[in-house]
Computed example of a mutant assay.
Amino acid sequence: MKEFKKVEIKNLTKIFISGKNKVKAVDNLDLTIEPGEFVCLLGPSGCGKTTMLRMLAGFEVPTTGNIFIGNKDVANLTPDKRDTAMVFQNYALFPHMNVFDNIAYGLKVQKRPKAEINERVEKILKLMKMDDFATRVPSQMSGGQQQRVSLARALIMNSGVLLFDEPLSNLDAKLRLHMRDEIRKLQKEVGITSIYVTHDQAEAMSLSDKVVIMKDGKIMQVGSPIEIYQRPNSEFVAKFIGRANILKAKLIPEDGNSATINIFGHEYPSKEDLNGKSKEVDIVVRPETIKFDKKTHEGTVLKSVFMGENHEYEIEVNGQIIEAVLSNPHGKDIKSVGERIGFTFDHEALHIIDNN
């Protein structure tokens, strides 16, 4: 059985030079990806995630740093000399070859025996549920089918690490959801170490064991989707993943190591250890955690939009604007723009960003 590889990135930097200008696309990164893990590199355009993936694949040479796949430093090796396979954004299929030959191409380059090639292609076609597509050419298939062929071509190489370069960005929304589920299911079944670049937050959250948030060539936070969403370490991460209110508040020490959070003059319990000191903090409040069954606070509705399964509000309170989401609004007291509305915060969902 194939041994899937651990990936370690150490002090990785990539500087692009254009005339007198230097652009540091990747800035001294360290990252460890365990064997069999599915990791998403997520961030805005220009954050360095694609450059990092291209260095892992061997399409870019690092300016400094190391890339270990297993125990081997591959930072300066060509793509064919490292134990990786890649699924591209544009599928990169040969238009004149049928599905069978597209999938078999890498094995033919390796001069594998014909019987082995046939056996492995038939096996991967069955795994991908594409037995009936073997004789079709790319022009006879949909975008989703072509992407499955591209994935099959990468999987058949039996590499230790599988790389994805925004593979679903060319598909329509419904097909993206379907293919997202297919990729995760396949990765779980095969168990291959996978590194996936995307700018789509929902994609990263649904696929990943671990999410790596990047900005300006640096890693901002690494964690599970739940950790990243519920416990962001900065305002950037909080706002990049989902929607977030960032509210000014004060932490006040209580007896022992406990504390309270004072928001809009009301105190909520906190588990924060303050060492006896009060301090100003920012609080992350997700819109869906705001409750309307209690009237601890009151504000004026600035926006009231029915979205079917949810009703979305913008509420002005003490000069701050809060986004709030009322789930399952059917039969509930819906407020219009200009009306007053009462609400409270779920203290269990309050997350502190300490900027001091």
Rank of each mutant, 00 (worst) to 15 (best):
G338P: 06
P232W: 11
A349S: 14
F306I: 08
N245P: 05
P225I: 05
D346A: 11
S304P: 05
K332N: 07
D333E: 15
H351R: 06
A238S: 05
G256N: 13
I228R: 01
K295W: 02
A249T: 09
I226Y: 14
I263Y: 02
V285T: 06
D293S: 15
K277F: 07
E254C: 09
E312A: 10
M220P: 03
A238M: 04
Y268K: 09
F264K: 04
N262Y: 00
A349F: 04
S270M: 02
S270T: 03
Q221L: 01
S224N: 03
M307W: 06
Q230D: 15
H297I: 09
I341L: 10
D346N: 15
K250M: 01
L350M: 10
F264T: 02
E339M: 11
H297L: 13
D293N: 15
K271Y: 10
N328S: 14
I334W: 06
V237G: 00
Y268Q: 09
I341E: 03
F240W: 07
P329D: 14
Y268S: 08
K294M: 10
V284T: 13
A259K: 01
E254M: 12
N233E: 05
K303G: 01
V284I: 13
P329R: 07
K295I: 02
D333H: 11
K248L: 05
D293Y: 15
D216F: 08
S234G: 07
I252N: 07
I252L: 12
L251G: 00
V337T: 09
S336V: 01
I353T: 11
G319Y: 00
E348A: 12
I352S: 05
K279M: 13
S304E: 03
F236C: 04
D282E: 14
S336K: 13
V325S: 13
K291M: 09
M220L: 09
K218S: 12
D333G: 07
I315W: 03
G256Y: 07
G217S: 05
D293P: 09
K218C: 08
G308E: 07
F343E: 12
D282V: 03
V317Q: 11
Y229V: 08
H311T: 10
P232S: 12
A259E: 00
K250F: 00
P232C: 14
G276Y: 11
S327N: 14
N257Q: 12
D293K: 13
E267D: 14
Y229I: 10
I315M: 06
I219D: 01
Y229P: 00
I219Y: 03
V305S: 08
P287D: 07
K218V: 08
I261S: 01
G308W: 09
T296W: 04
Y313M: 10
N262A: 06
D255F: 06
D273G: 02
G331T: 14
F236P: 02
K335M: 11
